[in-house]
Amino acid sequence: MATATRLLSGEDVAKRLEAVPGAVVETAEDWVTLAPEKLVEAARFLHDDRDTDGRFLNGVSGVDRYDYFEVVYHISSLAHNHTLVLKVRADHDEPEVSSVSGVWRGAHLQEREIFDLLGVRFSGHPNLKRMFLWEGFPGHPLRKDFMGLPGGVSPGLKRFPKEDPEQWAGEFRGN
């Protein structure tokens, strides 16, 4: 009978990531925090490394930690049956993280989702547009301070600013 998936500890991951110098900023019990500028490099290394074999990206999620944004990558290896967690921090005022959609095709939609709901920009993403909300929606509702922002609101469409046709133009361009 199969055994449960092993969760690699932060130290283990950090040891593996020594091949990418300067990538690991902070090592916690279960995850490592990466330097934003080294993210893609580290992701590519984990994806290609045969011992780690991070070919399967379980999911990407964004968290608003009040002071900063945190983007969490759950990566697993189906061959070795282990999983590991990476985190990247982004500034709260101008959140920007480089995109890993070049490494994992599966990150494509999830990064769009995070951009849509949290407002974290992913540089290098091929098609970073709003996904769930319409073009021109003010604000990013999953932020903790959304209710306090202008336009962030008790429900009711009338409080949103008047639609600008220019904002809609993007939707009908190609990808």
Binding site: A2, D48, R50, D53, R55, L78, A79, N81
Partner: peptide, 11 residues
């Protein structure tokens, strides 16, 4: 019977 995911060929 059991999970079986091959590793890619080493480049």
């Amino acid at each position: 019977k059991d999970i079986d995911v091959p590793l890619p060929e080493p480049s």
